[in-house]
Design a protein around this nucleic acid. Sequence first.
DNA 1: AGTGTAACGGAGCCGTTCGCTCCGGAATAT
DNA 2: ATATTCCGGAGCGAACGGCTCCGTTACACT
Lengths: 208, 208
Amino acid sequence: MSRRGRQAEAARNDLRLLRAAHEVFTTQGFDAPVSAIAKQAGLGMGSLYRRYRTKEELLQRLCLIAMERAVEAAEDGLAEADPWDGLVLYVRTCVEFRSGALAPIAGTIEVTGEMWRVARLAEVVADRLVTRAHEAGVLRSDVTALDISLLMEQFSRPAPGPPDEGHRKVRERLLAIALDGLRAPGATELPGEPPSVEWYEGRWGSAP
Amino acid sequence: MSRRGRQAEAARNDLRLLRAAHEVFTTQGFDAPVSAIAKQAGLGMGSLYRRYRTKEELLQRLCLIAMERAVEAAEDGLAEADPWDGLVLYVRTCVEFRSGALAPIAGTIEVTGEMWRVARLAEVVADRLVTRAHEAGVLRSDVTALDISLLMEQFSRPAPGPPDEGHRKVRERLLAIALDGLRAPGATELPGEPPSVEWYEGRWGSAP
DNA sequence: AGTGTAACGGAGCCGTTCGCTCCGGAATAT
DNA sequence: ATATTCCGGAGCGAACGGCTCCGTTACACT
């Protein structure tokens, strides 16, 4: 797998690039300047634009990876013996990686076929996790898988200003509160209709 | 109060301007173009820059008004007989007005003396509301007033993309979940230390 | 060692955007 | 009729962002 010399450096740089892009885009929003990614990665613009021919291409790659990670997180949750612990692990992991912050980007770029594929997969796996929690009676019955996706998205929303360790801690506390609110049985019924998949994916542009 | 003719129109326009600015800044973020506010208000740039000499001046006014509204909301909550209902009313009202979305703006502009004054007042009133809920034993004991402020801020965070009625509904559902998570007694203890006021207000620049 | 080549950094091009100004005209007041 | 107030929006200068181009560097192969 690993090559030597200059090629190995290129591979390392690609990783650094993706990490930097994740960091920058999730905290500064998707209209962050490309130069900020290069800077964060400790690379020049030339290297970035050699690897990705356009900003959009970088974003597509980034979203794809984030979704793959979400799938992994869901599978990890499924591997957990206790349904509740599994669900919590999934939510915590996703919020930690801020996958939700990437989701709205999909509205800005063209969604590739592969992205749709992984998105469907992620949906299926997450559904399984939620269904299991429902059947075990540990998750309040009026909450849907989509509610949970949107909750994660809400908690991945970037805080303005420079990244701050304090923000991470605060998010953990607030998320713990919200997770308690997810436990069965709910104290009060949730208002309104559950959100629909059509609406949710409508923000991504038309289907494949 | 109301004047006639051209002066009355100017007063109406000021209101429209503030409403538009609130709408635009809370949904698009604080780096939204000034022209967008003028457009949303149905006015020209000239009218805007006659009333407010600079973008910063407009933002200062806007923040001040938002904080005054937060104070009102807290007082309304205090007027409620039931401590829990009062707290919920306060949180719901603030999230509805998205006061939290304005708070981070304070880091980008100079904070006037009057703004500090009202901020202190808001802090005091909100504290009273939270303390009352604690004493009544309806609010989980490990949550602080600052946690609640930050929760409101998290839920006021702008969603990318065009404003959408769906988002409002979803926010209500998610907020209902979080509010259930605030009820006493909490299912699991909150992680980490409670946030400190110094950290919270540190984002606004130095004290007056 | 010498040469070809793949990857690197970053200054700079060009189109766009943004805050703000300025002026001609319309509505009101005197 | 004249003076005053207020309005709209084209346009200015500066800054910014995506992307390219090119001189330089460091490895690979013989």
